[in-house]
Design a protein around this nucleic acid. Structure first.
Lengths: 219, 219
DNA sequence: GCCGAAGATGAGGAAATCTTCATCGACGGC
DNA sequence: GCCGTCGATGAAGATTTCCTCATCTTCGGC
């Protein structure tokens, strides 16, 4: 699978991103400052870089600039603090391929990573996820089950997508929280329970199974 | 282009659907009762049927059943009144491929028509619409312009999609209203104006041009 | 330049979605 | 079977999106 360099100094976020990407089959390397990031990128071997703008020693802009000057065309996804729109624009003009404002949901980052890697690995884009009787059209955001077709809200959609991308696997509330809601969401909340319920109401009770003490599982 | 049979007795809706489909390059035929619908379908020559359930002389169910018994496999999209969920389920089990509850927005119907015709014409699915500097990813619902990338709300997305599917063409407020909001929306409203404004705010002022006395145009 | 009509804009209220909270019920260990 | 913990559920409150309305600005004919 593809190799991804994560350049991020905040420990919490770095590990959030790393765990998530590894769980999805990517090979990851984490570096905590700009110099290291640049060295790794130029040395080669990475298919994509997740680059925080606020790195110590040499900030993200400088890394990006040096990279492009060295004619390294590895796709770059920038991480930036919310509100710093100017950063964003400058980043994109400076040669980044995409950006994410913090805090972000892991699934969003994942979607962008997949998007940027696809041209390279020539895999056609998946537009419908399916698992047994449940299917989800990613374009129209509609789910289809034996009970009929239903339109989903944004959260319901994100949750069902997560389940469909990990069929049969038990997902803990924490995993679901970080993937669908984001890494800085209150872990004491029971939003996941509530949304599992609304999903079950819409697509039918039987598809999402409760695994007591562990979490939920699809199929 | 593909030929579509519209079986609908309400004049207003029939013409709404017919105009819209023609404007998008489809060849249409309208019939107002179930007998005529069945006769046309069995005679052949249609690639898809838009079928109202509440037809006179022979209702939609009967038409669908007779069609399938006659081994006609033309895809069928059912139109049904909101709330009659049982109808919907029964319809799908009876061999329909998709359904729409009235009132519906034209763009939604169009999306489903395209979806059902695609397998036949082998055209790969479009996931990114582009026009000059403006592009829209239909999967992530994100727009990209020289000013950066922006996330769109549902309405903003539907509006921009409409513009991108008809680049350079002047769209009247009425057209936009019926396509994005639905055929029974108050024509005296200025929602279109308001949403054009929010879109301009997000993607930049210059892309959507006002054509005084006529409507708006992209590019 | 003046006037009327068309479009732009800001703000407020309505509706839908999302999140939290309190309570109820079910399961498993003992 | 009893109790404690975990999950299910309903409903209220917060937030976001959507739509309407009143006002302001711009355009084009005269």
């Amino acid at each position: 699978m593809s190799r991804i360099l994560i350049a991020e100094d905040e420990q919490r976020i770095a590990s959030f991103v790393e765990k998530g990407l590894r769980a999805n089959g990517f090979v990851t390397t984490v570096v905590g400052d700009g110099d290291a990031a640049l060295a790794h990128v130029v040395a080669g071997g990475f298919d994509l870089v997740v680059l925080d703008l606020g790195l110590p020693r040499r900030d993200g802009f400088a890394v990006l600039q040096a990279m492009r000057q060295a004619r390294v065309n590895t796709p770059v996804i920038i991480l930036t603090a919310r509100g710093s729109v100017n950063d964003t624009v400058a980043g994109l003009e400076g040669g980044a391929d995409d950006y994410m404002t913090k805090p972000f949901r892991f699934e969003e980052l994942l979607a962008r990573v997949r998007l940027r890697l696809r041209p390279a690995d020539r895999t056609p884009e998946v537009t419908v996820l399916r698992n047994g009787p449940v299917s989800l059209d990613l374009r129209t955001r509609r789910a289809e089950t034996p009970e009929g077709m239903v339109d989903l809200t944004a959260r319901e959609f994100a949750l069902l997508e997560l389940f469909l991308r990990h069929p049969g696997q038990v997902l803990s509330r924490e995993q679901i929280l970080s993937h669908v809601w984001g890494y800085d969401f209150d872990p004491g909340s029971n939003v996941v329970d509530v949304y599992v319920r609304t999903l079950r109401r819409k697509i039918g009770q039987d598809h999402i199974v409760t695994v007591r003490g562990m979490g939920y599982r699809l199929g």
